[in-house]
């Protein structure tokens, strides 16, 4: 039990970088980016191929990050310059990346057994927390710079930030690129930890990323950017714990995981909306009754008034 919990913690940290990428596109840019399924594999593939060719695993991870940046730039350009719908841009890139990933790896599966990885010399339980905290710090610092504010405003009110002179095409491309860089880095680390890169390792990644973001925000809150990014990392860990627990249920198969993930995301998406609608309805009903009883006793009344 403890073993599987520790395993979940480790996996959660590895996948949290991918979740942070999904957070940047889905929450900050309001751009549902499906490139993730492809760029995760791109990251894993680049790292695996470079490591098997004898390159330093850190350099290989950095190159994987770069590969993700490039994939993101392509998606961003398709959307902003090609005027293609955001979802469709992501799907197009996801499909294109399948072929590209195959070209990178040359075969559907590249083994890293016996190769030296970033986790060979130092245990993942030491490397990953440091890496995740460092990336959290850098990301939060970036999101508080002038450029970072423009990026956030692009998703919050694009018309407003354009009127203050930001090129929202550029900020969108930048954001999608950065997000996919993190996703690819996550793929590179997952490949090194699991000992192989596989052409299908990215399938369903976007939904897992969404699940982590939504679970994290629901359990740990999301008052501001720092708070939310930490919540997202914790959400990725909780997701892995839920998966580990689900796998202990006897009649569930490993292949049921994607269905479980989909159901978690559906519940997490539907529940808050339904709850909010119900609350709004109750509030409207109560206020209507209050106001009509007040209006019944007096003929006129100023509502609001003060600035």
């Amino acid at each position: 039990m403890l073993d599987s919990l520790l395993g979940a913690l480790e996996l959660g940290l590895l996948y949290s970088l991918m979740a942070l990428g999904v957070y940047i596109t889905y929450r900050i840019l309001d751009f549902p980016d499906l490139t993730v399924d492809g760029s995760f594999t791109t990251g894993g593939g680049i790292a695996a191929v470079m490591i098997t060719h004898g390159y330093n695993p850190w350099l290989a991870s950095l190159a994987a990050f770069g590969g993700g940046l490039l994939a993101g730039i392509c998606t961003g350009l398709l959307h902003t310059k090609g005027k293609i719908n955001a979802l469709l841009s992501g799907i197009i890139m996801m499909i294109a990346l399948y072929s590209i990933n195959m070209r990178i790896m040359g075969k559907p599966n590249t083994s890293l057994l016996g190769e030296s990885t970033v986790f060979s010399s130092v245990n993942a339980f030491i490397t990953m927390p440091i890496a995740v905290i460092l990336i959290l710090l850098l990301l939060n610092l970036f999101l508080r710079t002038d450029l970072g504010l423009a990026l956030r405003a692009t998703g919050d009110n694009a018309r407003m930030i354009r009127s203050f002179g930001a090129n929202t095409d550029t900020t969108t491309v930048l954001g999608v690129s950065l997000a996919n860089g993190l996703v690819a880095l996550s793929g590179a680390l997952v490949a090194q930890q699991s000992g192989f890169a596989d052409i299908s390792m990215g399938i369903g990644m976007i939904v897992i990323g969404l699940a982590s973001v939504i679970i994290g925000e629901a359990i740990f809150g999301a008052t501001n950017v720092i708070h939310t990014t930490i919540s997202v990392v914790l959400g990725a860990i909780v997701y892995r714990i839920v998966v580990a627990l689900a796998l202990r249920v006897e009649w569930l198969d490993t292949s049921d995981l994607k269905l479980i993930t989909a159901i978690i995301v559906i519940i997490a998406l539907v529940l808050p909306t339904a709850r909010r609608a119900l609350r709004q309805k109750q509030l409207a009903k109560r206020r209507t009754e209050e106001l009509s009883s007040q209006l019944g006793s007096r003929t006129s009344r100023t509502v609001g008034g003060d600035f």
Partner: peptide, 19 residues
């Protein structure tokens, strides 16, 4: 943050801290 974005109106936005 809104004021910081307005303050950099029409200028190149870089990696300096906004606030």
């Amino acid at each position: 943050e809104n004021l910081a974005m307005a303050y950099t109106r029409g200028k190149q936005r870089g990696l300096g801290l906004s606030i």
